[in-house]
Write a protein that binds this DNA or RNA. Sequence first.
DNA 1: GAAATAAAAGAGTTTTTTATCTTTTATTAA
DNA 2: TTAATAAAAGATAAAAAACTCTTTTATTTC
Lengths: 145, 145
Amino acid sequence: MGVFSKTCEYGIRAVLFIAHKTASGGRVGIKEIATGIDSPEHFLAKILQDLSRKGLVQSAKGPNGGFYLDGKALRRPLSEVVEAIDGDGLFTGCALGLKQCSEINPCPLHNQFKLIRTEIQDLLQNAEIGTFNNELALGIRSLKR
Amino acid sequence: MGVFSKTCEYGIRAVLFIAHKTASGGRVGIKEIATGIDSPEHFLAKILQDLSRKGLVQSAKGPNGGFYLDGKALRRPLSEVVEAIDGDGLFTGCALGLKQCSEINPCPLHNQFKLIRTEIQDLLQNAEIGTFNNELALGIRSLKR
DNA sequence: GAAATAAAAGAGTTTTTTATCTTTTATTAA
DNA sequence: TTAATAAAAGATAAAAAACTCTTTTATTTC
């Protein structure tokens, strides 16, 4: 098991790919995105439809259509993409799956995982989608393989 | 999504429960374990069969039979239970699901998640199964709800 | 050695996740 | 206003994870 669901992995990679590809305007089609992040095209289409409905990515139909990110979307933290797809379980859930795990009813790993979860949340909340464009443009970060 | 699979959550909780219940000798049956950690009995049976084959828990059939942990098993770190069930993906995998993500071919989140993964691995490697018995006996740690 | 006990093993089912294929709708441009 | 383009939507399908039920095997006790 990874930290994110496969759906969420594809979603994050796609959003970063779109941000990078449309940095200087224009749109990018689902085929190019799927190839660019090595994901199943139609499955990714579903994911992006969902993110589009939620306003996390923008899209346009027809010739010259495709996906892109407006200014606001570019400034969103990755945590919002994660929450939109996987929910906030990663940030708030119990490591051992206990529904009522809390400070007053802690599981054996509660204290230690609280720290970990907070770290993950912090890092994702501080990771603006647009900030990865530089390194992607330089080719020193990969979104496939 | 949690950090562990449901199977792994049950596995960890069961192992800690067995350790606690058999701390002063004896065995504990599958029914009592399933009730004690609030898990589906037959599903848990499968998990414990697997852990038993791998030597992470001990078992005995027949009257007075049940599950227990020998001295060695009690001193094992929780990381071994996790690895036995979920594999080492949590410790070594890429957050974005890239097969070849590494120092020389990093994904955008590689550096930050490397730290997180190491922290999780460290905490599980330093968490001996038997060390939770105290707090479980005191009732200040929960394995159900 | 027969009866009772309890885990192991086998054989499913259900649910969720991941993935595919087809049809529809919106947009553009000739 | 027709043809081409590209996302949206709908309908399935395949695979994996989670869960259930039944039969078998090993062990103990009488």
